[in-house]
């Protein structure tokens, strides 16, 4: 395996009885990058990640993680990989601090509990039993445990789902910090802006397949429909722009969204409004985001099914 590759997966499949959860996917994750899996519920993200983590066995295909087969060499990878599962749970009447200390002694690490608790802002509840923590606090304990063994490769399956906005920003900072320390991060998320902001590359999955893969900027450039000009909706504007100028227009509520391909198109819209004495009360330009592309892609997939 190329020493620059943290993970290579070739044509992996996984079924649960009748459900094809992962249907022949291949990808490469480079060392030191943040790689993000995106996709609707049930797309197969968790299943894929669990096969990479070595806690689920692929039906077929080849997986290589840091030079090892994760299913058969899970023990060798244990010290080099950190895992925060999607549905993290822990022993009921154990506190976050005790849990981290327990992991530290199992991994033969010095006690890092205060440092890690600080990192995810859990110090306040460090002595509360796990069963009494809030959903977000439980998740943060999972993140701490994934980092105890100072891993080269970190798997975070939806680490920010259910966190408040401030806590999410804290996790973003943490992921940036992990990347700056040279670690590879596999991030699963439903927040597209999070992936756009943090990930070097993303893979969008649906129905067990990867439908698009690449850096967010590349994907937006390749698949985006260009810029949109958004003005207030009037019947006259809509008709003129779509029928006379031939621009792609769509109405949503009070606003009219016009796909523009050049500055000339923008000028045309403004000139028509001026000639027809339409006073513009709102006006903005917007570029397609990863989220727009994601929604389009997934809708297309559904329609073609």
């Amino acid at each position: 395996m190329d020493p620059q590759h943290a993970i290579t997966a070739e044509n992996i499949h996984k079924s649960y009885a009748a459900i094809k959860a992962v249907n022949g996917i291949s990808f490469i994750v480079y060392k030191g990058e943040v790689f993000s899996f995106l996709g609707p519920n049930g797309a197969g993200k968790t299943t894929t990640v669990e096969m990479l983590e070595g806690i689920r066995k692929a039906d077929s295909g080849r997986i290589n993680v840091l030079g090892e087969d994760p299913w058969h060499s899970a023990i060798k990878l244990r010290d080099r990989v950190g895992i925060m599962p999607q549905d993290f749970r822990f022993i009921e009447r154990i506190t976050p601090k005790e849990a981290i200390r327990y992991y530290c002694s199992l991994f033969g690490m010095p006690d890092k509990s205060s440092e890690l608790l600080e990192l995810v802002e859990l110090s306040e509840v460090q002595d509360v039993y796990f069963q009494n923590l809030s959903g977000g606090q439980k998740q943060k304990v999972g993140i701490c445990l994934a980092l105890v063994n100072d891993p080269e490769l970190v798997f975070l399956d939806e680490p920010t789902t259910g966190l408040d906005p401030k806590a999410r920003r804290k996790i973003w900072d943490l992921i940036r910090k992990l990347k700056s320390e040279g670690r590879t991060v596999i991030l699963t998320t439903h927040y597209l802006e999070e992936a756009q902001m943090l990930a070097d590359r993303v893979a969008i999955m649906d129905h067990g397949r990867i439908i698009v893969e690449g850096s967010p900027a590349d994907i937006i450039q390749k698949m985006g429909k260009g810029r949109k000009l958004i003005v207030q909706y009037t019947e006259e504007l809509f008709r003129h722009l779509s029928e006379v100028l031939g621009l792609e227009c769509s109405r949503s509520g009070d606003s009219l969204s016009v796909t523009v391909h050049s500055n000339r198109d923008v000028m045309d819209v403004l000139e028509f409004a001026d000639r027809s004495r339409i006073e513009l009360t709102s006006l903005s330009l917007k570029e397609d985001t990863l989220e727009d592309i994601f929604v389009d892609l997934v809708t297309e997939q559904e329609e073609s099914q």
Partner: peptide, 13 residues
């Protein structure tokens, strides 16, 4: 049910 064994299997225990 809570997948705590899975969690422990990821440690040297």
């Amino acid at each position: 049910k809570d997948k705590i064994f899975r969690q422990l299997s990821l440690t040297p225990l």
